[in-house]
Design a binder for these strands. Structure first.
Length: 299
DNA sequence: TTCCTACCTGA
DNA sequence: CAGGTAGGA
């Protein structure tokens, strides 16, 4: 529904935006701030109390007030789909809640949801994520978007949509490198050529069972097991995908398996799927959410 | 299988 | 040195 925000008693930020859509969460657990800032998606930024991001070819603007979402940009349907508000999170959390550590993580991050990202943007984002922290990843994606995406102005700010595969496939590698993506330039070009030459690549992967989809994505240069799992989890709704980064590996090794040797990627993943079940990917997100409290070096 | 190193860039 | 991957021992 479209509603008028009563200016009285509200922040300046709210007052300058007259029309916002609203969505009532009712009893659906959802924590917007955590969901957009936990490191799964890289384009959300906070200005004046609202989160903004280019999603598809529009700018989305949103904030949460208790069980109410105030938003502008998406339709209600798009909003629900993107944030997975149609997913029975309570059931999933009950399912993965199988030990004291994940139990604590669930309590702490309750309402964290896995976003349904665009597969193409997700693929490039995680190719850009190797050997980098979150700000570094955001910078690379921002650079690519500034250079090759479309400019959109909103609330006195400038945003850039993420370029599609065809657009990137036109570029020479030396041009991509000006976006400070470093050695990932060839990987990005390769992925762009693949996606531009097969408009149905994403549908094909979406239709495959997890192990096959994982194998298929790994054929791309620059896509190893970790990147493939991120793309499957955040871009393809494959909740068996369990991305294992240095944090998760350390948590699994020290808190779950009591080992000293580094876990192989395969071993870590199969342990997680056995232990947490079919929604292991959600368990990964919740553990990642508390990584700094439980997974510091030397613990 | 497991281990090693180089790879861009910047914090 | 880093939320990883490729390529070779």
């Amino acid at each position: 529904m479209r509603s008028w925000c009563n200016p009285s008693g509200h922040s300046d930020a709210q007052r300058i935006t007259f029309f916002m859509q609203t969505f009532s969460l009712k009893d659906t657990p959802f924590q917007l701030d955590l969901t957009v800032s936990c490191g799964q998606a890289f384009r959300w930024r906070q200005y004046n109390g609202f989160w903004y991001a280019p999603v598809g070819d529009k700018i989305w603007k949103i904030r949460q007030e208790r069980d109410l979402l105030l938003y502008d940009g998406p339709t209600e349907k798009e909003l629900i789909r993107y944030f997975g508000l149609d997913i029975p999170l309570d059931d999933i959390l009950t399912d993965i809640d199988r030990d004291p550590l994940i139990h604590a993580a669930i309590r702490r991050c309750l309402g964290l949801r896995i976003i349904r990202q665009d597969p193409w943007e997700c693929l490039i984002s995680y190719i850009c994520a190797t050997c980098a922290n979150i700000p570094g990843i955001m910078m690379r994606i921002e650079n690519l978007s500034e250079r090759y995406g479309n400019k959109i102005e909103m609330d006195e700010m400038t945003f850039h949509t993420f370029p599609d595969a065809k657009r990137l496939a036109e570029e020479e590698m030396c041009s991509i490198r000006t976006c400070k993506v470093g050695y990932r330039d060839a990987y990005i070009c390769g992925a762009a050529e693949m996606a531009a030459s097969d408009a149905n690549w994403a549908e094909k992967i979406a239709g495959m069972p997890y192990p096959e989809a994982h194998e298929k994505l790994m054929r791309l240069n620059g896509v190893g097991p970790k990147v493939a799992d991120c793309v499957l989890l955040f871009g393809f709704e494959k909740y068996e995908a369990f991305p294992v980064d240095v944090w998760i590996e350390r948590i699994l090794r020290t808190k779950y398996l009591g080992g000293t040797r580094k876990l192989s990627y395969k071993r870590a993943g199969s342990f997680a799927r056995e232990h947490f079940g079919q929604y292991a990917g959600y368990a990964q997100e919740y553990l990642f959410g508390v990584r700094e409290e439980i997974g510091r070096k030397g613990e």
